[in-house]
Design a protein around this nucleic acid. Sequence first.
DNA 1: CTGAAAGCGCTAACAA
DNA 2: TTGTTAGCGCTTTCAG
Lengths: 334, 334
Amino acid sequence: MRQVADAAGVHPATVSRALNPETRDLVNKTTARRVLRAAESLGYRMNPIARSLKTSKTGTVGIVIPDLTNPLFPPIVRGIEEVLEPAGFSGFLVNTDNDSHRERSLVESLQSRQVEGLIIATALLDHPLMSELALSGARMVMVNRRTEGLDVPTVVPDDAAGIDMAVRHLAELGHTRIAHLAGPSTTSTGLVRARSFAGAVRERGLSDDPALVRHCRAWYEDAGAEALRELLDSGTEFTAVVAGNDLLALGCYDVFGERGISCPDDISVVGFNGMPFLNKLAPPLTSVVVPHHRIGAEAATLLLDKIANPDLLARAIVLPVSLGPGGSTAPPRA
Amino acid sequence: MRQVADAAGVHPATVSRALNPETRDLVNKTTARRVLRAAESLGYRMNPIARSLKTSKTGTVGIVIPDLTNPLFPPIVRGIEEVLEPAGFSGFLVNTDNDSHRERSLVESLQSRQVEGLIIATALLDHPLMSELALSGARMVMVNRRTEGLDVPTVVPDDAAGIDMAVRHLAELGHTRIAHLAGPSTTSTGLVRARSFAGAVRERGLSDDPALVRHCRAWYEDAGAEALRELLDSGTEFTAVVAGNDLLALGCYDVFGERGISCPDDISVVGFNGMPFLNKLAPPLTSVVVPHHRIGAEAATLLLDKIANPDLLARAIVLPVSLGPGGSTAPPRA
DNA sequence: CTGAAAGCGCTAACAA
DNA sequence: TTGTTAGCGCTTTCAG
């Protein structure tokens, strides 16, 4: 910076003012131009580290997700980055693998890197770390899932509407005994979708036999397979399954293969999320499509707003979903 | 830090020495313990920004990929992070969308954030930006693909072996006219796999009709579909396809659907990469499985080595691949 | 509108 | 072994 100052024949402080768009109007237009040209021709690049030290603004945020290899998250992350980047922010991405110790230490490491905010995709309904963060006044937003009783900005899909679409679709095909493979009830998505399911079947006069609902121990395929096996072994009758997400639905596909069950002829399935390549499956999975990219973008926007204006009140954004096409549903066997 | 110094009754410099594991042995054990306790009880966390300013070491690296939503990359990124994290490093991830302007500006922004190195997954065979970076002495490693004629550490899958496995498998099933949907010949993966294909068919006395090989304009499904349509329309006879990667193979599936071609009965297909959920496709895609997670981990290791010891010479690591199971291949129609 | 001066929190010679 | 001193590159009062 000193070199630029010398080249432009001004004091470094003036260079600083001229180079920063926020303060550029504090300086004579002509001088500013001279400084800009000098900087340009010297190929000068500001050191954001030094600036951070002075301003304690790092232009970074932490992104906390369970596992990047879950196809749910890449589009969310891209949505986030698409908003951060033009704002001059960058994100540090960490994967917790749903391990709360790991999560805690990763969040600490993000904080020690002085991130200006946190985007959290790992929220559990009851989540001590989240409560601590919120209470400590950390700037944060929750994405996809939420923690109960916390006044934190949130961006989630319209779980209730999605489940209702799935149930309605199956009801219209003639199904009356529909099962639900719910995600873990420790997550808001697991609980809300299960509740919405209960509401939707009751509202339509379909069977609300509690044996038709099983909570899976995780959001992964094997947990879905396990739950479906138990359901089948329990002898409960059903002709369709609403899965809490697409991976649970894929777990169902595995069990269909094992047991020679034909989908959709014997059992119809609807998934949730609309992950990529669903149309290449056998059969193509009918799924509730969630705008993940937009979820990420809205979350990043909310966080940047909060950073720019800390005493903004927490908003909750609910994004609309739609029922995607597929071939995994059909009328029940006569 | 001053507070800790006061609490421990020492000079800030001593605190610095005591808190840094690298310099801890420069200080009396007893004093060190006293400092540690003081720091602990004050809940002191050192500011890495300030440290960076002094040492010009940020503990960050840039990760440059084309597109996180391509299922190839999440496991690579996780492999990278798994090595960076225990080393106290963090990664900034950017997506170029294969746009060279975007790539250039993203790399500049990474550099202005003072990353200590770059992990590049966007390399083209002829890639001016990469040459500039390498020549400017930037610390970098290339993953998955490489740029020609650059002395840069590289981690790639064994493309030749993978293609050979695919061709051998098809040859053993009895195919003699095998087509290859190659990736763009601007990429090392596209070119090397195409060359290996040519070698493999010749070696086995199979048809090396040049009409059987088509380069796709991108690594995506639609490009694969387009190339296969052209191939079919050209009237060239073939009974099997080796696709340059799994997405190109999925493009073939689309065309099979459009034209009522049955796979594997009419045409066999082998993909490359072994992306997730291949076994759920119809038919399950037989593919060359690449250890992506390990590719990422090795790349990060190479980069950290280079950072720790800058005058290390560039190594190229080639990782072994294997032919995954699947149902998309069968003997040719009699 | 611009310059001078101080300092963000830490580290690394150098001295003692 | 520890303290002293200077300074990393920038921003921001405060004067002028």
